[in-house]
Design a protein around this nucleic acid. Structure first.
Lengths: 197, 197
DNA sequence: TCGCTGACAGATTTCAATATCTGTCAGACA
DNA sequence: TGTCTGACAGATATTGAAATCTGTCAGCGA
């Protein structure tokens, strides 16, 4: 009803993020979002065709935000082994920070990830591509060897998924988790490096 | 009520397995089990203190049965790399056969695994020990190198968990799954082998 | 004596009535 | 003309009363 402020998708997403943060995915309603924006829920539907599309758009924002440091590492130049290790450590630490630096949000993040399956799948594919980029840089540098960069990148990603999937969230709580991640990273780095002697 | 047949834990477990197979964990009741044995449910409680203990005992039987071929491979003598590859392939194929060769049972298996957490955890630890056995054989044979057998075994296991956890069951349905498993196994074998040149 | 029975209490699940939410659309309003 | 509103239908979620299940135990019968 505020005539001065235009209702944009961006404003709706910000309000949705806030409402999700407060109520969680299950309890949050489109009417809540509309109320936060001081419009009727019909207006929200003018910009987003469904609650699911809102949820997916918010999930995408969050995942893009979380993904940013990983993209940077993959785009860097420099020795591939160091970058691969840094990439994996960053990926793990993002999860350890519960994606969003806000422990309270974690449950909501899990619910979002559960619902926004396609968005999460696309994000996984993007992560595999980032790993593949580092691997092929490593092959060019003569420090990695693999007969199929894409398949190996997928394998590296698959190997880390225990820690990337909400179902394994409890693993993070275990005191031995950091040392297990260290061992896993060491194993993966050994798996892709060139054998020199 | 049958005076000729003694009510033993073994008989109760067999009846429970049958009832679970027919009704699933949620629908199966202790009274169903008692009925199958032609006794009152009070008699079942004489041998098992709770429905959960019945569930855990059945889960343990199933997991022990599924684990048997893996134990054999670990106990074998022979070149460690071949055995590790065989072990991993067998572990994957057990899951692919849905643990019990009976597709109808898979949902029930998932429910059991969900409930019998402690039993499943013990089973995981046992699997890590089996991998460690093969790895240390490999070190003795001079074909594997690792500074910490147990940690590496855990890392190998962690790397395969995407395919061992019920939450990832859908991954099995994907057509590219076999090639992804191939890539993962190749990566892990490279990660533990000695570099010769 | 010792294993088994079945009534029972408390916990859990089911189910249907009720309330709330999603998504649409005719019409208001600027 | 283009955006917004709010009543509405169908879908979904909540609720609480009734039904069922778990686990106990006093007492029965071999």
């Amino acid at each position: 009803m505020n005539e001065a402020v235009v209702l944009t998708p961006e404003r709706i997403l910000e309000a949705t993020e806030d409402v999700l943060r407060r109520f969680g995915l299950t309890k949050a309603t489109v009417v809540d979002v509309a109320r936060a924006l001081d419009v009727s829920h019909g207006s929200v539907y003018r910009h987003f065709p469904s609650k699911a599309s809102l949820r997916d758009a918010v999930a995408k924002r969050w995942l893009d935000r979380a993904n940013e440091p990983l993209c940077k590492i993959a785009a860097d130049s420099g020795p591939a082994p160091e970058r691969l290790e840094k990439w994996l450590r960053t990926a793990f630490s993002i999860k350890q920070k519960k994606v969003c630096d806000d422990p309270e949000m974690f449950a909501t993040y899990l619910a979002l990830a559960q619902g926004a399956r396609e968005v999460v799948e696309a994000y996984k594919d993007k992560q595999v591509d980032l790993i593949a980029k580092i691997l092929s840089d490593g092959v060019a540098q003569g420090v990695f060897e693999t007969d199929n960069v894409k398949a190996t990148a997928r394998a590296v990603f698959d190997a880390t998924v225990r820690y990337h999937h909400p179902a394994h969230a409890e693993e993070w709580a275990k005191p031995e988790c950091p040392s297990r991640i260290d061992a896993l990273i060491a194993l993966l780095l050994r798996g892709v490096r060139v054998c020199k002697h």
